[in-house]
Design a protein around this nucleic acid. Structure first.
Lengths: 369, 369
DNA sequence: TTGTATGCGTTATCAC
DNA sequence: GTGATAACGCATACAA
């Protein structure tokens, strides 16, 4: 019979000097005078399974509390249980130096909803920061430590995401996203919101409107256009010759005062700009209107499908809608929690808030009547 | 002889349907015709330790790639006995709705430094959110799941903190704090910063100055006073009758124009206000100066030991200093990482940035000469 | 240079 | 009701 020699903790780095190790279930068990498995059972607080005497329960709970026991998330995950951790992964710094570009409004909702549901958040430091996950393909993999993960920003590598999704790891992307297939997302309902703005203009009496948009194919853009068109159609005959949609890669160059006047002459009475990262469409529109000497909203109504860029924030409040960022964050957490629990994904679309603003009114033909 | 019956994967919940199991090192090993340990060695790519033949290396790497092997972070961390997680605990919401009161500038530095060092961040949803850890004394215990934890805000219960510290759990408090004993903290060097401001005024020719401070005993306040006094002493004889420090529980009430004029008559030429949460000292000073019709900086110089409150942010830039919040966040992470690694704590004091501003100039006697 | 054995802390099963 | 015990996937000390 061979007695296995006592080995010096294989597979484990030496504990740093002076630092007390985290208490484990085994120590709780010793203190309470029960087995480790019993501790696990008590702490899991399962309804089904072996019933546990109240006395034992109390002993265990007391021991755990006095030791400051807290379960190791890694071990929990490894044993295929949950660790009550939701990941948040962004591809730019989550907290950029410039607050303007931050995910702050989303995080407000994320934190609130996570707390509500008893989850803590793990902020995976993004690849752009050159830190933890800068090294290629493993960057995304770290998120598997959590029960599920929220992704922020457009630059998530599709390849890695695809893998996570394929493995059945709960993932929610903040912002509509069609790739990879099967990816869950939460986004603002731009179609309805844009349509609501057009409906508002139509109710004021406008019939001919032009949408100013940039030249990209982002879902957020095409959704707005769709809502715009739906609204137009419902209101009656669409815009004049040249189409109701003005699309330009550089609206600040292409949207000239002359063009505006020509539209007005054609009977167009309202202009709608999409919101983009740069705010170029709205800026171009405001400037062209000013240069053309058009009085807003007397001679023409203006609307913005979103919020104005920072440099125009002080101007007159545009008719349009606000993107419910905080609610989007909360909705994302809600969906993620559902996926983690093995349930169906919740509703991905979040309604925007209509903003009356001061840049729209009845069209001239009606106002002057 | 008893043959142990094959059990149905104990300790493991049934895999969710539709979820493909990921390949493990063992399968990579089988495919490459080596042992699991060898796979681990190859993938770890350690400089030291057993060398591995190039041939085996390639076989293993090829097998891993063809299977799409990705390491399981939970298992990795379990084996390594560290989670690579740094906790962040705040006693108000980490992301309050009102950005003004938020820890944003700190978090910028925290995230950057954590990423730099390969740590991810766990945001413990604080007590105020009424969420995960709202329930009393156990709230703080949750942080033990991280390798160490950063505490934000003044309201951390000393009792719980003491316990963590006593257990050798790595803790760093953001902001100077003397209790509990042994608590590590990182803070701004208000003494030096205040002194630098006084030195600046002294260099301009000021000799008699008054410090306006509120009536509390926070280290941040007493530090500023100390720096102020040091600077005064170095500059020569201290202020006039009544002392160089004006202390009031409600400066906005007590700091009257008459009092200001009386100081001026006594030969005081510069006024220094401390920064507080409310900004009361600075606000009171500005108002009293305005009401007294004193021309700043011609007739009197003003300085602020910190940054102005939001409602005065648009006014003339005060001479004073900026609190390096972002660098404080980074320094806190640096210290925490050191503690986690079992090293000595790093330097707790972070220098403030002197801000020349426009509210100070030579004293009248000199300027008019 | 590679393989074997063991432990990390947890959950779940099964026998007592 | 309670206590062994296997297994999760990986990393390391040691033997071969």
């Amino acid at each position: 019979m061979e007695e296995p020699r006592k080995r010096a903790r294989p597979g484990r780095a030496p504990a740093p000097a002076g630092r007390t190790a985290r208490p484990r279930q085994a120590e709780v068990a010793r203190l309470a005078g029960v087995s480790q498995a019993t501790v696990s059972l008590v702490l899991a607080d399962k309804r089904q399974g072996p019933a546990i005497s109240e006395e034992t329960r109390q002993k265990v709970l007391e021991a755990a509390r006095s030791l400051g026991y807290v379960p190791d998330p890694a071990a929990r995950r490894l044993a295929a249980a949950r660790n009550n951790l939701l990941g948040v992964f962004s591809f730019t710094a989550t907290f950029p130096t410039d607050v303007q570009h931050s995910y702050y409004p989303f995080l407000v909702g994320v934190e609130r909803e996570a707390a509500e549901r008893g989850y803590d958040l793990v902020l995976f430091t993004g690849s752009s920061t050159g830190g933890a996950g800068a090294a290629g393909p493993d960057a995304l993999n770290r998120v598997r430590l959590a029960d599920g993960c929220l992704f922020l920003g457009r630059h998530a590598p599709a390849q890695e995401l695809r893998r996570l999704v394929a493995d059945g790891f709960p993932v929610v992307h903040l912002g509509r996203r069609d790739e990879p297939e099967g990816l869950h997302w939460v986004g603002a309902d731009y179609v309805s919101a844009a349509r609501e703005v057009v409906d508002h203009l139509a109710a004021l009496g406008h019939r001919r409107m032009v949408l100013i948009r940039e030249d990209d194919e982002a879902p957020a853009s095409t959704d707005r256009e769709q809502g715009f068109l739906e609204g137009l159609e419902a209101a009656g005959p669409a815009g004049g010759p040249g189409g109701a949609v003005f699309r330009s890669a550089d609206p600040e160059r292409d949207l000239t005062p002359e063009r505006l006047r020509s539209w007005l002459a054609d009977g167009v009475t309202a202009f709608v700009a999409e919101e983009t990262d740069t705010g170029a469409a709205w800026r171009a529109l405001r400037r062209a209107v000013a240069e053309a000497g058009i009085d807003c909203p007397r001679e023409a109504s203006l609307a913005l499908l979103g919020s104005p860029p920072a440099d125009l924030a002080d101007g007159p409040e545009p008719t349009g809608f606000d993107i419910p960022r905080t609610r989007l964050g909360a909705a994302a957490v809600r969906m993620l929690a559902a996926l983690v629990a093995g349930e169906e994904a919740t509703e991905p679309l979040v309604a925007c808030t209509f903003r009356p603003g001061v840049t729209s009114g009845p069209p001239p033909a009606i106002a002057d009547r």
